[in-house]
Simulated assay, not measured.
Amino acid sequence: MTEDISYTTEEIAKLLKISKLTVYDLIKKGELPAYRVGKQMRVDASDLDAYKRRSKGIREPAEEPPRPVNASGSLRPLVITGQDVSLDILAKHMEKSIPGVRPLRSYVGSLDSLISMYRGESDIVSTHLLDGDTGEYNLPYIRKLLIGSSYLVVNLLSRRAGLYVEKGNPKQLRGWSDLGQPGLRFVNRERGAGARVLLDEQLRLHGIAGSKLDGYDWEENNHLGVAGKVASGEADVGIGIEKAAAIVGGIDFIPLIQERYDLVLLKRPDNLEWIEAVLRILRSEAFLRELQAISGYDLSQTGRVLYET
């Protein structure tokens, strides 16, 4: 029976042929009722069927219009995008210390995160996008993509990025220019990922055509996937962060850049209270203590406001 069936947000996205961020947007607007089971959000089949009927313009005689998300004391979903584990820790602290909100995690890349914020689909986005011409992280992209929006940019952490290579570095790769070496088997990140933007900017600055990299179009959707392909011997080199190399093991990491990992928070009248609470969390001893237990993070600027419109 449909009342005994429920779906995850990923399953809903596949059934409706929409993105997971769009599913979260429907939940935020109260158009698709959802509830939490452990760390997962679930939607009952009956509620999905009701949403589909409404979308087709079919209204049942006894049907009431969907209630706003915050009606009757219900929790307000806040979508946090990005893939770093620090964001999961932030979401946990928010859930514990900010009443009335329900953090939802969406694991998408930096550029897609900013685009989702521009579309109104997310509330807190993380980004690590290098502008090769200025050497500046994030702000050049944020200013261009969030034109007309009011927002706050705050540092979450810094971390080292570079090359994943085979143990012992048999290809003797030392820098970005070495990626032009003939015969290298490369594994890439998906379009929109911060590591993909970092690679493309460095290739441009060093005059290397991506089309000449064997494997440039071979994409993995996270740092662990890239590191894993190098560890298995399927690729000679990939781009990513230091922490993933330590987790996967069996490979060497060549650090090339210190990247700044920032958060962007939309400023609206109904957001101001929880924005202040998020800033308190970022600067709290409890949050910093958890991040300090994870190797590879520079927390010297954590919680610092870098830009505000």
Rank of each mutant, 00 (worst) to 15 (best):
residue 45 A to R: 11
residue 228 G to Y: 13
residue 165 V to P: 09
residue 221 N to R: 04
residue 158 S to V: 05
residue 228 G to T: 14
residue 227 A to R: 01
residue 20 K to W: 10
residue 177 S to T: 11
residue 114 L to V: 03
residue 58 I to S: 04
residue 87 L to W: 01
residue 231 A to Q: 11
residue 149 S to E: 13
residue 282 L to Y: 02
residue 175 G to L: 02
residue 77 P to S: 11
residue 28 K to F: 01
residue 63 E to Y: 14
residue 228 G to M: 12
residue 111 L to S: 01
residue 269 P to E: 04
residue 18 I to Y: 05
residue 147 I to T: 12
residue 147 I to E: 14
residue 299 L to W: 01
residue 239 I to N: 08
residue 130 L to N: 08
residue 112 D to Q: 02
residue 50 A to E: 14
residue 94 M to P: 04
residue 141 Y to G: 03
residue 72 S to V: 11
residue 2 T to R: 15
residue 224 L to C: 07
residue 41 M to F: 13
residue 216 Y to K: 00
residue 52 K to T: 07
residue 116 S to K: 06
residue 286 A to G: 00
residue 224 L to T: 12
residue 222 N to E: 08
residue 235 A to Q: 12
residue 202 Q to W: 09
residue 148 G to R: 14
residue 178 D to E: 10
residue 258 Q to W: 04
residue 248 V to M: 08
residue 111 L to K: 00
residue 239 I to A: 09
residue 296 G to Q: 08
residue 140 P to A: 02
residue 210 G to I: 05
residue 212 K to L: 12
residue 10 E to L: 13
residue 176 W to I: 06
residue 244 A to G: 11
residue 71 A to H: 13
residue 146 L to E: 11
residue 125 V to W: 05
residue 50 A to N: 15
residue 215 G to A: 03
residue 207 G to A: 06
residue 247 I to S: 14
residue 76 R to D: 03
residue 266 L to E: 10
residue 73 G to K: 02
residue 1 M to L: 15
residue 114 L to K: 01
residue 106 S to K: 06
residue 107 Y to M: 01
residue 156 L to F: 06
residue 53 R to E: 12
residue 252 D to R: 07
